[in-house]
Design a protein around this nucleic acid. Sequence first.
DNA 1: GAGTAAACGAGACGGTACGTCAAGTCTTGCG
DNA 2: CGCAAGACTTGACGTACCGTCTCGTTTACTC
Lengths: 211, 211, 211, 211
Amino acid sequence: MQSRSPASRTGRPRSATADAAILAATREALVELGWSKLTLGDVATRAGVAKTTLYRRWAGKNELVVDAVAELFDELELPDRGSLAADIEGVVLQFASILALPEARSGLMAVVAEATRDEALRERIRASVVDRQKRLVLEGRARAQARGELAAEPDPASSARTVDLIFDMVAGAVVHRTLVSAEPADEEWVHSFTGVLLRGLAGEAPPPADV
Amino acid sequence: MQSRSPASRTGRPRSATADAAILAATREALVELGWSKLTLGDVATRAGVAKTTLYRRWAGKNELVVDAVAELFDELELPDRGSLAADIEGVVLQFASILALPEARSGLMAVVAEATRDEALRERIRASVVDRQKRLVLEGRARAQARGELAAEPDPASSARTVDLIFDMVAGAVVHRTLVSAEPADEEWVHSFTGVLLRGLAGEAPPPADV
Amino acid sequence: MQSRSPASRTGRPRSATADAAILAATREALVELGWSKLTLGDVATRAGVAKTTLYRRWAGKNELVVDAVAELFDELELPDRGSLAADIEGVVLQFASILALPEARSGLMAVVAEATRDEALRERIRASVVDRQKRLVLEGRARAQARGELAAEPDPASSARTVDLIFDMVAGAVVHRTLVSAEPADEEWVHSFTGVLLRGLAGEAPPPADV
Amino acid sequence: MQSRSPASRTGRPRSATADAAILAATREALVELGWSKLTLGDVATRAGVAKTTLYRRWAGKNELVVDAVAELFDELELPDRGSLAADIEGVVLQFASILALPEARSGLMAVVAEATRDEALRERIRASVVDRQKRLVLEGRARAQARGELAAEPDPASSARTVDLIFDMVAGAVVHRTLVSAEPADEEWVHSFTGVLLRGLAGEAPPPADV
DNA sequence: GAGTAAACGAGACGGTACGTCAAGTCTTGCG
DNA sequence: CGCAAGACTTGACGTACCGTCTCGTTTACTC
């Protein structure tokens, strides 16, 4: 999250509870106010903390919100449901349920938007949010290959590209459904989505003539 | 965009050039400053217009940026490339090229983020950005069905659901690739993406053993 | 009040009623809002007149208010009450009753304050407000000299100085009483004031021991 | 001037120098621009202070100017010149010399005008400007009574009324001479004024026939 | 268990932008 | 050309947060 120079061993140590209180207050404020009306002064007040304490730990609103939202993704995991399709549906539903939380909806897109002009922020998001999800894709694929549902990809570079592609497709679709179309990514939708993802558009409907 | 009561026929009419100047200035400022550092006062100055003139036409930053970005999507069209796959690749590339513009990158995600807490804004985005793209999906599908590449869907409700799903998948994947992964949605990527979209994950790689 | 070039004889003539309506609306606004919150746009609306019409006649707020307030002083006159003391009391009470009107209180001091930095405005005030009152002082003195209550002053320069002095004393005292001390200049006060003015401080109280 | 709750002992203390700089800047701006063109933003800039700092201490232009002008009256005092007439001339000259300052001319009338619609402002003016002067009248009268120039007034209520009357007459005359007539209240004028004030109009000229 | 160094709360500080308001000017079309 | 309507530029308003800076106070380590 944030670290102090290892040399500083003297003086009063930072309050551990303050960190937690600030992140909780940030999420609370995100729910009530949304990203754009969230102010650091207000967060500090909610957390029962002085503004300086907050600035001692985070550089600004962006960094703070990334950390606050990232904690929501801690619980993601991939239970083995027996088949690739079921595994995908499971993890997509988990992802969708997080995006349904107002604190995530408000904050996530906003920091992504900010990150278009801030490389460090983009890296922070990648490290604390994206990679945590991408790990599940890797895990799911390995499992599917073990089951024989997917062939092994020998070339590591091409393999990485495929993972990235799939991840962009999964995460992108859920995000777009949830935030842009503003419709719930419920079980029915996830099922349809998984169908297309696995079998393609053509395979979805009765098989085409030839192609 | 914005309209006045049709009854108001008296008084000095609004300057038509001002509108265009403001929207152009907004895009310019988006490129240089990005969403969060864009200020309406600065936009007004760039447009050679008073702040009040700007506020007379738009309620705030969000509405202004939506309109400014929406104009970028005016040029989208779907040339007939002969096959569904080629059509998809064509339109996805067009979409990706717009998202590659800095004025779109900076602004689009931000207004979407704002829209999570503002129904009217969400509707404005849908009307001026999303629907303009969704039309292409409809058109492409009709063409594919005419070619026999896709079967006709008799049930209109299910048909609409399918269009929405495909649209979320296409737009979401491109957006995620471009803004979150921060990698270019170039021809190679679009080709891979189209492959998965049409034939599914399983069909992408060399066919699996059995299943 | 204001004049147009005598050459302009063509075109639509100015509405005579507009002038009266504007001045009346100005006084109404002075009562309701006071000087500082009075706006020309509001006056125009109250008068049922366009702002341009107002600006065509007056240069600004100051000039307009002077004219609006000056009309209040039109009615001042000096009935012959038989003695200098009674005449003074009469005119002072008249003056006080005008200053008791909210439209005068609010506006008069404000334009005087503005006039400290605007020679033309000061002249306008002098012409339309001050001189109208000073005339009464002259008249009253002539009458008193005719009655033998005051000796004639042969030197015209010294005579003018005395009139100015008396006028400053009378007007100043009433204004200060009314606006700064914020107490009514009622009959009792006017009587005491007139006593001091005519007989002096020493003569006011029972005569001092010696001196 | 302005005070904070005595309990507030925490937090960064207010800068003492800022207060002085602001008041000085206010007087400077009054001289250069006059009341109506004085803006708080400009004052803040002149004082090298942020606008917020200014608003933290004063509610608005009126209060600020009253305090800035009030400081000019700090130096008023009443040296014993040996006779009532000489004392009066002395203090009136002092008062006139303050009113001759452009910072006082511009500001004082304007705040008085504002005070006609603002009880709190009127009280503030009374406390910081008027009472400071009225004290001198009281002192002068006591001294004159001690000298035997004036008889003691046994009734306290009537005594207070007399002081108020004299004060309105003195202050009103000087103000009117200076600001409305826009003539200097120089020694000659003050001498004439004192003559009338002490001996009355009748006593000023060669003694009238009878009365 | 005294000293010390950093964290802490409070809140003032210099800034920047906000969104609004009024001033005074400039088109419109109608009379 | 006068006039009502209303858009226009300009510039100040008073507010809200920003991120920084004192203050005086607390709290843990260290000697």
